[in-house]
């Protein structure tokens, strides 16, 4: 077959790859350029490290980075950890398994902001949970369940919203593992944990990595849940970026934005690498 001319190949690729590169490339370019002083909306444009020095040196920046990493990593790991047993449970069809599967994936159809408001009603001072626990006698009176320092409420919402994504990806992966392979492992003496650790996890590690990355990136840049149910004494990076934007400090917002992108990339590589190393090991 004759090789098409390079310009024809480029033209064929352009509608797909070209648009992706233009849109993603433009965003990255603007954010990076703005963080180094270009596209300055309020002053002179030009190369400078001033905005990086000013932002990175702040205590608030450090706190938002560590807080966002905490939310991103814990949400991703918890969502995947919760999705695995469910995916294994739903691996073989049983009566009602389709309904169970649909219910578990329902959070994908509910907007985060709606779920966050519902959750707020549940955990608020006079909310359903407080009333229920008081009626059971577990609490003497209503307690403050919002604004917890460790963002437990926020993590619950993140896992609730993201677990179905992991479940979707993992269900397919664990269903692809043959029954005989699992039976052979069991027959050779592997218990439940050994079967997961040595067979199931290594054979579904790609789906695990995809889940971790997708959830981590989303949770790292969370704004909706954080502003609705997150602790008020903490700021996520998205919130911090918004804080700069509200004050028309676009270049500093861009610094946080670039940090967010770099952390997304590094965090994804880190999580995927860790999953690979823990569950697949290094091949000789």
């Amino acid at each position: 077959m004759r090789q098409p001319a390079p310009w024809k190949l480029a033209l064929l690729l352009f509608p797909g790859l070209g648009l992706i590169l233009i849109f993603i490339g433009a965003v990255i370019y603007i954010a990076v350029a703005q963080s180094f002083g270009y596209y300055n909306l309020q002053g002179e444009s030009g190369w400078t490290l001033e905005f990086w020095e000013r932002t990175v040196g702040r205590r608030a920046y450090e706190r938002s980075v560590s807080y966002s990493l905490y939310v991103g990593i814990v949400s991703a790991v918890l969502s995947v950890a919760l999705a695995y047993p469910l995916a294994l449970w739903l691996r073989k069809p049983f009566k009602g398994s389709l309904t169970v599967s649909a219910i578990l994936k329902a959070p994908l159809l509910i907007h985060g902001i709606v779920a966050a408001f519902l959750f707020l009603n549940v955990i608020s001072y006079h909310g359903i949970l407080n009333q229920f626990l008081v009626s059971l006698g577990v609490f003497d009176g209503p307690r403050r369940l919002q604004n917890d320092d460790n963002a437990i409420g926020l993590l619950i919402m993140q896992v609730w919203k993201n677990m179905p994504i992991a479940l979707l990806l993992l269900t397919g992966a664990v269903q692809a593992i043959s029954d005989d392979v699992l039976r052979a492992a069991r027959d050779l003496g592997a218990g439940v944990w050994a079967r997961f650790r040595k067979i199931i996890a290594p054979l579904s590690v790609s789906a695990m990595q995809a889940s971790l990355i997708i959830i981590f990136i989303g949770a790292l840049a969370d704004f909706t849940f954080q502003t609705t149910i997150g602790p008020t004494n903490r700021q996520s990076m998205a919130q911090y970026m918004d804080w700069f934007k509200e004050r028309a400090r676009w270049n500093e917002a861009a610094v946080v934005g670039v940090t967010l992108m770099v952390l997304s990339l590094l965090g994804s590589i880190g999580l995927a690498g860790a999953a690979q190393l823990i569950f697949r090991g290094r091949r000789k």
């Binding site: 052979a184 027959d187 050779l188």
Partner: peptide, 27 residues
């Protein structure tokens, strides 16, 4: 099954696809 002193040779072989021959043998 894991506590029985039996071992099966499966029709599909059921080899662990991610493990080398050596790792399969000593599993």
């Amino acid at each position: 099954p894991e506590a029985r002193d039996t071992a099966i040779c499966f029709q599909s072989y059921a080899l662990f696809p991610h493990l080398s021959v050596q790792e399969n043998l000593i599993f």
